[in-house]
Amino acid sequence: MTDNIIYTDEQGSEAWLAARKGVITGSRFKDCRDRLKNGHPSKKCLDYAKDVAREREGGEPMPVFTNGAMRIGTEQEPLARMIYERKTGNIVDEAGFITTHDRLFGVSVDGLVDDDGIIEIKTMVSSDTLFTAFVDGDISGYIDQCNGAMWLLGRKWVDLILWVHDLAAMKIIRINRDDDVINALESDLVEFERMVSRCQKQLADALKEAA
């Protein structure tokens, strides 16, 4: 995708929240595809569609919950980026929140490398995450976010950085662009966007009746 809009506001600021308002964001792409065994959208998927619809209809931006683990992740990001540069020799340019020109979809990536690369930093704060991703190698929870970033930014690879801050250990997993996988993701995200539009229309109709 091209013709993106870049927002450089500080993460968590009012301007940052405003930039994300009504946008389907990369960190939730996995939720957009969450389905029950019968193929119907899960409650997590439906709830997110309703949140986005409410924002698009003029509601306040949904509060972004921040816990201790997320704060540690944010604090550790600059150090992890520096260590990544030292280990790989890659120079990383920081990036803000990037949306499509129609502001339907957006991603916050942790850095851009040359013309083709992206980095995504995940700090292994919880031991569950440490053993799932770092020890067992199960990175399925991050794949949609990484592929979505390549889709929106037209890039060829993502280095997923698993950073264990308290043990000073880092794994770098290269995820190369697979257009078949990205096309499937795009199809599911477009279908989710239709769900958001349907929810928004239902809300708009209800608001008119209540006026």
Rank of each mutant, 00 (worst) to 15 (best):
P63F: 09
G22I: 08
L152M: 12
N67P: 01
E77V: 04
I161M: 07
P61N: 07
R71F: 07
M62Y: 05
V109Y: 00
M82P: 00
D128C: 02
V125Y: 02
V92L: 07
N147G: 06
D34Q: 02
F29N: 03
A133K: 02
N67F: 03
L167F: 09
K87E: 13
N67V: 06
L112A: 07
L36H: 07
G68Q: 09
I175K: 00
L207Q: 15
L189M: 15
G141R: 01
R155F: 00
E14L: 10
R33C: 06
S197K: 14
L189G: 08
D178I: 08
A184G: 07
M170T: 14
S42N: 06
R71M: 09
A184Y: 05
A210T: 03
A133M: 12
G68M: 15
K156P: 02
L160W: 09
F65M: 10
C146Y: 02
I172G: 04
V64C: 01
D102V: 08
R71Y: 05
T66N: 01
C199P: 00
G26R: 05
Y84F: 15
C146T: 01
A149D: 01
R174N: 11
L162I: 07
R28I: 01
E60S: 11
H40N: 05
F131P: 00
V52P: 01
T74G: 06
D159V: 04
T132P: 07
S187V: 03
F105H: 00
D115Y: 04
D136H: 12
D102K: 11
R28F: 02
Q11G: 03
A184F: 04
M1D: 00
D138Y: 05
A69I: 08
G22S: 12
N90H: 15
S27L: 10
P63C: 09
M70I: 08
E120P: 01
Q145Y: 04
P41G: 15
K156Y: 00
G22K: 07
I6R: 15
T99S: 15
E120V: 00
L189Y: 13
Q76I: 06
D102R: 06
D93G: 09
A15Q: 09
G12Y: 02
D110R: 11
D115P: 00
Q200C: 13
A49S: 14
M124S: 10
L207H: 11
N38M: 10
T2F: 07
L160E: 12
T100N: 15
D93E: 15
